[in-house]
Amino acid sequence: MSYVADEILMAYADGELTPEECQALERLLRQDAALRVRLAPFVETRAQLATAFEPTLREPVPDRLIKAIERARPQARASMTSVPLGGRLRLLVDAAAARIAPGGFTPALAASMATLVVAGAAVGWLAGRANTPAEAPPSLIATSGPDLVASGALAYALDANPSRTVLTTDNGRTSIEPIVSFRTTTDSVCREYRVTVSGAKQDAAGLACRTPSGTWRIAQHVETPKQPARTPATDGTYQTATGINNPAIDAMVETMISGEAFGADDEALFLKNAWQSPQ
């Protein structure tokens, strides 16, 4: 029987062999128990390490790191004209919110909010979490190859919720709110969102961009200072939210946005059209 080097066994475990090499090695592996024993350390270590470190990817990135990157941009800042776009975006958002407020939480909006809350509960149920006393919030972000993508209720909210409407899930513990939508200079559509988990020390906020395959790629996901939970009051009024106002997210939006953020009508067209550009 021919000798197979450790390195070849490892390359097999790591998916580095060609299909032909795999077939040849698999023939030998079937016949040779000792060879299978030698393969085990490579298969096991790869699987164990990948599994052990995977959750790290989903943790929000500390603000400090993002600031460290942004600090080093004096030349970019200097070339920027007038009001930083993040600020402009904020003004737009607040103006849009002001059209609904003050106290103008219309019955139609209240009804759609109720639907969304129910939908959120359904999402929780589908994910098999509604009846479990969840300690960890439901997984909102998954990996897809090298990318992070929105999953579960976050993907649902980005797909279906107009900006400034809250979707709650995980028995009301987790609230997800798309904040604003816009088109990028590379002609894709992105949405800023906020996630609030009751009991968590921090909120999270992020930026997700629609991919051609219909997923929402997470461009950014950061911790933000805790905000009071937003729940519709019993008298039907609604507390007007402030923007996320996270400098890291604002800065990224500045680099990506083309023109201005979508108004409610533009956004409604995208919502209807599964986030494809209306023709």
């Binding site: 790290t56 990817l57 970019a76 680099t255």
Partner: peptide, 19 residues
């Protein structure tokens, strides 16, 4: 240009942190 690289670095942060 610089801005674009910074955005890409920020997007890389989760993986860099894991590494």
């Amino acid at each position: 240009m610089v801005d674009e690289i910074q955005s890409r670095m920020i997007q890389l942060l989760p993986r860099l942190r894991r590494f």
